[in-house]
């Protein structure tokens, strides 16, 4: 984490109303989590108590206090995906990547997360990697997709 970078992010949001979430979002994007030190800087600069910031950081699923992996794999467990076998898909992912949902691989490459709906139920079952959506997938297709992302492709 770089103090100057955090200050730069804060400086981009001069309007006092509703900037906390926007600032935290940028910090989250940059460091893939909200470092404690960054929250301390935000608290000092904005005059918002660290307690409040901790509350915001833990309330929203988009924020994380632990570093997330370079690639975020979101497996949809919405109603349609659930019916179409999201559980099997998730288990396959867990096996292939070697972690449970909610965890990050030791090398920091992948984070597996369970989400409630990606908003494209007609494609169920669905997962997305860094925002790229894969619909109508079978568990057996997981190794191939993983291979693409491991190889630096995917995007």
């Amino acid at each position: 984490m770089n103090t100057a970078e955090v200050r730069e992010i804060i400086a981009r949001h001069p309007e006092p109303e509703g900037r906390v979430a926007a600032i935290l979002e940028e910090i989250q994007k940059k460091y893939r989590h909200l470092p404690e030190e960054a929250l301390r800087i935000v608290s000092g600069e904005l005059g918002v108590s660290l307690t409040r910031l901790y509350g915001v950081a833990t309330f929203y699923a988009a924020f994380s206090l632990e570093p997330k992996g370079e690639h975020l794999i979101s497996i949809c467990h919405g109603t349609a995906c659930h019916v179409k076998g999201a559980k099997n898909l998730a288990e396959r992912w867990e096996r292939e990547v070697g972690i449970k949902e909610g965890q990050t691989t030791a090398d920091g490459m992948f984070t597996l997360e369970a989400v409630r709906c990606l908003g494209c139920c007609s494609l169920a079952p669905v997962f997305s990697i860094d925002g790229k959506t894969y619909g109508g997938v079978k568990p057996d297709q997981v190794p191939e997709v993983l291979g693409e992302w491991k190889g630096g492709g995917g995007r």
Binding site: S49, L50, T51, R52, Y54, T58, F59, L65
Partner: peptide
């Protein structure tokens, strides 16, 4: 002195000092 606040949400919601 704003030493404690709400953290997390839903069934996990609790009152806690930062971190």
């Amino acid at each position: 002195n704003s030493a404690i606040g709400f953290a997390f949400r839903g069934s996990q919601r609790r009152v806690s000092p930062p971190f």
